[in-house]
């Protein structure tokens, strides 16, 4: 069975720890990055089944990282979920256009996050 590895990219250690804890309990392996630059590096060296991505981050924000990730053929099919406090329709549309699979508004219940990740990774 393939390892189910999820990348969580968020500049908040709290969010990374909460998401990682919930997903690990559900049987996923989790790798973490604190901004878009580290996130792209991390994506380059890991075989990922899912990326969870904050929007407002230093160095490279989540929407820019999403666009770069999706333009790389190696990662084009990896589902991406955005996790953010933002609700601006223009941002949501930009993420959808870039190929994200969903938009989650913080704070999200961890059981709902896990079931969404499970659903999206089981239909790849």
């Amino acid at each position: 069975m393939n390892e189910r590895k999820v990348l969580i990219v968020d500049d908040s250690e709290t969010i990374r720890q909460q998401v990682a804890s919930a997903l690990e309990h559900a049987g996923f392996n989790v790798v973490e990055a604190a901004d878009g630059v580290d996130g792209l590096e991390c994506a380059g060296v890991n075989d990922l089944c899912m990326v969870i991505l904050d929007v407002n981050m230093p160095r490279l924000n989540g929407l820019e990282m999403l666009e770069r990730l999706k333009s790389d053929p190696r990662h084009a099919k990896v589902p991406v979920l955005m996790l953010t406090t933002e609700v601006q329709q223009s941002m949501i549309e930009r993420a959808k256009k870039a190929g994200a699979r969903g938009w989650m508004i913080k704070p999200v219940k961890m059981d709902q996050l896990v079931s969404t990740v499970t659903k999206l990774t089981s239909v790849q």
Partner: peptide, 9 residues
Amino acid sequence: ASEGDIILF
């Protein structure tokens, strides 16, 4: 959308 929502595309 509001806090806690999950919107799937």
